[in-house]
């Protein structure tokens, strides 16, 4: 079975989804990513979905879950490169991914993770996405 590669870049993990996601691939990614975070002690996870043309509710929820699990393991997640059509679909599905940070492209996403790492242990979060909302989605 295909697996999505997870690259380690300093204290961050980089996941670029280049193929259309199906449910088993998504479940495998969730599992792999969790193990890699635990193994490497990464502080940030960047998921690039700029090649994803279709995102259904399952993938949407997977992104949310990955973010929640990563946070439990001490890493923050940023999802980058979401397409306009995908964003509209997710919003219409009611999946606003409140627990996930987002950025326009990989460059900005890495800059965001870099800022977290500079700030220290990754617990501090800047910007308007409040920590309270994140905790609510965790369960």
């Amino acid at each position: 079975m295909d697996r999505i590669p997870i690259l380690k870049l300093g204290d961050a993990l980089l996941v670029t989804i280049q193929v259309d996601m199906h449910d088993r691939l998504a479940a495998a990614l969730e599992e792999d990513l969790t193990e890699r975070i635990a193994a490497t002690g990464a502080k940030g996870v960047l998921i690039d979905i700029s090649s994803l043309g279709i995102v259904d509710s399952f993938i949407g929820r997977m992104l949310d879950t990955v973010a929640a699990v990563s946070r439990m393991l001490g890493a923050d997640t940023v999802v980058v490169g979401m397409r306009p059509a995908v964003a509209i679909t997710l919003v219409e599905l009611g999946l606003e991914l409140k627990g996930v940070r987002t950025a326009l492209n990989v460059e900005r996403g890495m800059a965001l993770i870099g800022r977290w790492l500079e700030d220290g242990d990754g617990d501090e979060r800047d910007g308007p996405a409040a920590g309270d909302a994140n905790d609510g989605d965790g369960g």
Partner: peptide, 13 residues
């Protein structure tokens, strides 16, 4: 709010 949420998903505040 939908518009705001969609823009946020794209990585814009």
């Amino acid at each position: 709010l939908k518009t705001v949420a969609a823009a946020r998903l794209m990585g814009a505040d």
